[in-house]
């Protein structure tokens, strides 16, 4: 399969990989990977200035996937963009594989930071963005957060700091699929009014349909001397009808039959 720069095709491939990886590894978090697939596809096809053949390039944009439980999707996009061979994905979660269940940086080209404990990524991205600004580099730092992660106090510390310092080259994307581990975010711990809170913290707030590639692609230009948060309204399990907006796909792993049905829906030859 050739590499693609078409974000729609890239998102489809991410979803296909995620289904196969979570089925094979009997792993969780397929729903969260599917909800973020379009965001990751747009970032890696259209937004981030990164080089697969030079992952440590000093002037690259930094991407931190703070929602580390969606590791399968990040590995999938990195493999599709050529950071490492696609066949690594077949060993996801296996003994001695570099690809751990949650995002792991060790031995994985293109991964900036290991995550999995929530509430770390935005602080890391703050430091990366401040570092780039202090050194006079034009690089951006982008952190992808989950909605459940917005419960963490450290996340709000970082929102407060970035607004105060007007870190214009910092971006947060919230994958707002409105389902966390125990139930709907509105029932577990409501974040609303989310846009108003983040705006009050000194951020540009852009609300988009998190599956609309054009809208996502236009959301990452620095402006107003403020950091920008993209509230991406998404559907958990997006792209596989029987997984969409269903709580059980936070933890459930697709069976062989479910994998087959999912791949068929994604137009993937079995």
């Amino acid at each position: 399969m050739l590499a693609t720069t078409d974000s729609v095709e890239l998102a489809r491939r991410i979803r296909v990989h995620v289904l196969r990886m979570t089925n094979r590894a009997r792993a969780s978090h397929v729903g969260t990977c599917l909800s973020a697939a379009d965001i990751l596809a747009v970032l890696y096809a259209k937004v981030l200035r990164v080089r697969a053949d030079q992952p440590d390039w000093a002037d690259r944009d930094r991407f931190v996937q703070s929602k580390g439980h969606g590791g399968a999707a990040l590995y999938a996009v990195l493999a599709e963009r050529g950071f490492f061979p696609r066949d690594w994905l077949g060993k996801y979660c296996e003994d001695n594989s570099p690809l751990a269940g949650h995002v792991s940086h060790r031995g994985v080209p293109g991964v900036e930071a290991s995550t999995g404990s929530l509430g770390h990524g935005l602080s890391l991205a703050c430091g990366m963005a401040l570092g780039a600004r202090s050194a006079g580099r034009g690089a951006r730092a982008v952190a992808l957060l989950s909605d459940g992660e917005m419960d963490e106090g450290s996340t709000w510390e970082a929102f407060l700091l970035a607004g105060h310092h007007r870190i214009e080259n910092l971006f947060a994307v919230i994958d707002y699929n409105k389902i966390q581990s125990f139930g709907r975010t509105d029932d577990v711990l409501s974040l609303e009014p989310l846009a108003g809170k983040l705006s009050a913290f000194g951020w540009n707030v852009t609300e988009v349909n998190g599956h609309d590639h054009q809208a996502l692609a236009g959301a990452f230009e620095p402006r107003n001397g403020r950091p920008t948060v993209v509230i991406a309204h998404t559907v958990k399990g997006k792209g596989v009808s029987f997984m969409e907006d269903r709580l059980e796909w936070h933890y459930k792993s697709p069976s062989a039959d479910e994998l087959e049905r999912g791949l068929r829906e994604l137009g993937e030859p079995l």
Binding site: L124, G127, L130, G131, L160, L161
Partner: peptide, 24 residues
């Protein structure tokens, strides 16, 4: 190169890590 932040130790450790990842 001087960052005096608020009372937010979790965040400043993460931020310091991000700075270190940038070569500082």
């Amino acid at each position: 190169r001087f960052f005096m932040e608020g009372v937010s130790e979790q965040n400043i450790i993460g931020m310091a890590a991000g700075l270190a990842m940038d070569g500082f």
